[in-house]
Amino acid sequence: MIHYRNKREATLLQRSTERLDIDLLVLPETNLILVASVIEPLRGANRIAGSELYRWRLLTPDGAPIPTTSHIAIPADGTFRVTSEETPLFVLASYNWRKSATPALKMQLSQAARYRTMIAGIESGTWLLAEASLLDGQPATVHWEDYEDFATAYPEVQAVRDRFVVDGKRLTTSGSLPTVDLMLEVIRQRQGYSLALEVSRLFRYEQPSFHVDEPLFAASAGLRMQDPRVTQAVRLMEEHIEQPLVLTRLARRIGVSARHLQDLFQQSIGAPPHVHYLALRLNTARRKVIETTASFADIAAATGFNSASAFARSYRASFSESPSQTRHRLRRRIMPSAPPT
């Protein structure tokens, strides 16, 4: 489950074409995978978009490389200090967070909260925010193993069993994979469903069985499709990109009503069928725009659009630029420099 309250106040989750900078305060004995769960979806979004949508900076309490539980130190970009910066601050912690919860650090977090547009507790970082009294009277989540202890230790905080919680200027997550879910949600809210879907493909897939003859559909990677009927519907969508199935026909082939299929999609992946279907087609089209020299009319036809103009309108609405702008911008970046004369 995902918990939202006062979502409109969360500038992190608003549609924007501006670059988003994030500061990560990483505490000792943090897992590598927890750091990666924040950074890698953002890196993937930058790579797929071909532009710097996100930039991050790793800070530590003393500016020194941070030791992790994997015995691999992470270099720091600087020391965490209280400034008037409004950049969102993510506090990352895994094990033995109490060693870092010094009066000085708690005071720094409390002072930083006056300026930061968002402060996030990532996994055990939630405990640090609670210690600094930054979660009083608000819902918050922690790792499932710590839920009872957290609820007992901080009765002034509304402990909830959700994957992540967004409440105004506070955000908490319950572990590494929920943090990936959070970052995908940030990308979806800021850049749209299509880009978030493409980023999710970089990280995980759901394979229905171990039979070698079972096809792997990469386009649906990263989705938590709890209902096999949704999985079947997504596969049918992927098989019918050039000639999209109308919702009623798609539902009939699954064996449910169109209304019920809409409900299943909303419950399973948080988006209606038409939104997911359009994202699949647009992502396929975008890859063709970047990787081929096909005309936009041919790409439109190959991805189920009635005309090049209809394709261009939908493409711009999703990616905030035209197909020609994407092709020119990204190809300019990968063109080799002319040899010296």
Rank of each mutant, 00 (worst) to 15 (best):
D162H: 13
Y115T: 14
E291I: 04
P75E: 08
V246W: 07
T231R: 13
Y193A: 11
H211W: 03
S84C: 03
G125T: 03
L197Y: 08
L245F: 03
R329I: 00
T126Y: 02
Q138M: 15
N96V: 07
L177N: 15
V212Y: 06
T79G: 04
I22Y: 06
P228Q: 09
L134F: 10
R249Y: 10
R331G: 11
I290C: 06
P155S: 10
E214V: 14
M107Q: 15
L278Q: 13
L236H: 06
H240D: 11
Y205S: 13
P272A: 04
R229N: 10
H260S: 15
T102V: 01
V35T: 15
F164N: 03
I119Q: 06
M1F: 05
H240I: 06
S100V: 00
A251H: 05
K288W: 10
R15F: 04
F90M: 03
A104W: 02
S51M: 05
L182N: 03
Q232Y: 08
S209T: 14
D263N: 15
S324H: 09
T87W: 02
T172S: 12
L42S: 08
I22K: 00
I119P: 08
S84P: 00
R329E: 09
I122Q: 04
V157S: 08
V38R: 00
S307F: 05
A301L: 10
R5M: 08
H3T: 01
D136T: 15
L177M: 13
T179H: 02
P215W: 00
L53A: 09
P65N: 06
L135C: 12
R19C: 12
R286A: 06
R43V: 14
E198G: 05
I187Q: 06
I299W: 01
A153K: 12
P340Y: 14
D263F: 10
E52A: 08
S37Y: 02
K106G: 00
P228W: 07
T141L: 04
Y205A: 12
A93L: 00
K169R: 14
A104C: 01
L330S: 06
Q191D: 08
A251V: 08
E321F: 02
Q266D: 12
V160S: 07
I33W: 02
